[in-house]
Computed example of a mutant assay.
Amino acid sequence: MGVALVVGSCLSLPFGAAVAAQLFPVLGPWGATSLRVVIAAVLLVAIVRPRVRGWTRKQWTAATLFGVSLAAMNGFFYAAIDRIPLGPAVAIEFLGPLVLAAVLTRRLADAAWVGVALVGMALLGIDGMIGADPLDPLGVVFIVIAAGFWILYIRMSARVGALIPGSSGLAMGLVVAAMLLLPVGVPTASIVAGDLHLLLLAAITAVLSSVLPYSFELAALRRLPQRVFGVLLSLEPAFATLAGWLILGQDPTPLRMLAVVLVIAASVGTTLGVRRGRRRDDASGPFTAPIPLPD
Rank of each mutant, 00 (worst) to 15 (best):
residue 108 L to F: 09
residue 123 L to N: 07
residue 177 A to G: 12
residue 126 I to D: 01
residue 140 V to L: 03
residue 105 T to D: 07
residue 178 A to L: 12
residue 169 G to V: 08
residue 168 S to P: 12
residue 171 A to M: 05
residue 140 V to A: 01
residue 148 G to P: 12
residue 132 A to C: 01
residue 86 L to Q: 03
residue 176 V to D: 14
residue 113 W to K: 03
residue 118 L to G: 15
residue 85 P to W: 04
residue 164 I to K: 09
residue 112 A to M: 11
residue 137 P to E: 05
residue 141 V to M: 11
residue 116 V to C: 13
residue 180 L to F: 09
residue 143 I to C: 03
residue 101 A to R: 09
residue 145 I to R: 02
residue 156 M to L: 12
residue 144 V to T: 12
residue 152 L to W: 04
residue 180 L to C: 13
residue 84 I to A: 03
residue 84 I to K: 04
residue 97 P to A: 09
residue 166 G to D: 13
residue 105 T to G: 14
residue 142 F to D: 10
residue 130 I to A: 00
residue 164 I to V: 15
residue 113 W to L: 14
residue 115 G to N: 09
residue 102 A to G: 15
residue 97 P to V: 11
residue 110 D to K: 01
residue 82 D to K: 10
residue 153 Y to F: 15
residue 114 V to D: 14
residue 90 V to F: 06
residue 111 A to E: 01
residue 148 G to R: 09
residue 152 L to A: 15
residue 92 I to T: 03
residue 168 S to W: 14
residue 130 I to L: 08
residue 98 L to A: 14
residue 101 A to D: 04
residue 176 V to P: 13
residue 139 G to A: 00
residue 93 E to H: 05
residue 85 P to H: 04
residue 115 G to I: 05
residue 89 A to L: 06
residue 103 V to C: 03
residue 83 R to L: 15
residue 154 I to F: 08
residue 177 A to D: 10
residue 103 V to L: 14
residue 170 L to I: 14
residue 149 F to L: 06
residue 104 L to K: 11
residue 82 D to Q: 15
residue 153 Y to T: 05
residue 141 V to F: 00
residue 163 L to D: 10
residue 148 G to V: 09
residue 134 P to H: 07
residue 176 V to I: 14
residue 155 R to A: 13
residue 120 G to D: 08
residue 132 A to D: 15
